[in-house]
């Protein structure tokens, strides 16, 4: 049971977020918060608005309405750079890697290390990348190949390393295991728990119910752009969540399960 007293200020608080594309309401009036050392699952159908909500938090999209506070301070996230400056890092489902560049160049893309004369410090970036990647996967050796030549697992490792290397406070993981094999999936799960123990707050978008029940402390389910339920994980079971995802409501006879 997770009965640790919650700190007074959440890491992130998204309140009454809406996003409209013309007449289409992708996200409507959704509020969500995240505390240090907590994993919050964001669930829903494809097109339920969960990715959209997370893209707003990662600065890739701007909200039409609503407010975001980070560490108690209101912020405006107009670009991915803004979000990163607030300590919000994202692992995108598409991984967002530049295929023609190597692992180190991708890891430091947008945040390149430079020498005194403003040149790229490839040697230092390579050394740091090697260390960061070895921590996640000891077999990672072909660092100088363009990432298009790497396997799905290796590419995923680069995307993860990029997010955690820069001391994130908030991590958004969008389907982090969708392209991975079983051992790599276990690696990501271990890593998630390790980061959580370090006090990092994590939003996990996943379709995998095992992942959700193994890793999450709370879940928030979206349906048609709305928040249709936020629960502590021990108050719901898989059927409740599936009902929320599909129908948008809980089963009729539902009462808090109290950690079944």
């Amino acid at each position: 049971m997770f009965d640790t007293p919650a700190p007074p200020t959440p890491l992130v608080e998204m309140s009454r977020i809406s996003k409209r594309f013309g007449g289409l309401h992708a996200v409507t009036d959704v509020s969500l918060d995240l505390y240090p050392g907590e994993v919050v699952g964001v669930l829903g159908h494809n097109g339920a608005g969960k990715s959209c909500l997370m893209r707003i938090l990662s600065g890739a999209m701007t909200a039409s309405d609503g407010q975001i506070t980070v560490g108690g301070k209101p912020v405006t996230l107009n670009s991915p750079q803004d979000a990163r400056n607030c300590g919000i890092e994202t692992i995108y489902q598409t991984l967002a890697l530049a295929n023609h560049l190597d692992a180190a160049a991708n890891l430091f893309l947008g945040r390149e290390l430079k020498t005194r004369f403003g040149n790229l410090d490839d040697a230092r970036m390579f050394a740091h990348a090697q260390e960061a990647l070895r921590q996640l996967n000891p077999h990672f050796t072909n660092l100088k190949d363009p990432v298009s030549r790497l396997s799905g697992g290796q590419r995923q490792v680069i995307a993860i390393a990029r997010a955690i290397y820069f001391q994130a406070k908030v991590l958004i993981m969008d389907e982090p295991t969708a392209a991975l094999g079983p051992s790599e999936t276990a690696m990501v799960a271990d890593l998630t728990l390790r980061l959580k123990a370090e006090g990092i707050g994590i939003f996990l978008i996943s379709h995998d119910m095992h992942d959700v029940f193994d890793l999450c402390d709370r879940v928030m389910v979206m349906n048609k752009g709305r928040n249709v339920g936020s629960f502590r994980i021990e108050d719901v079971n898989k059927d409740d969540i599936l009902s929320l995802i599909i129908k948008g409501t809980l089963p009729d006879d539902w009462t808090p399960r109290g950690g079944k």
Partner: peptide, 18 residues
């Protein structure tokens, strides 16, 4: 480096803060 990254995958470059 940014020129290469934009040509390689523009959206990835944008999301990486380029």
């Amino acid at each position: 480096r940014h020129i290469l990254s934009v040509g390689s995958h523009e959206e990835a470059a944008r999301l990486s803060g380029v």
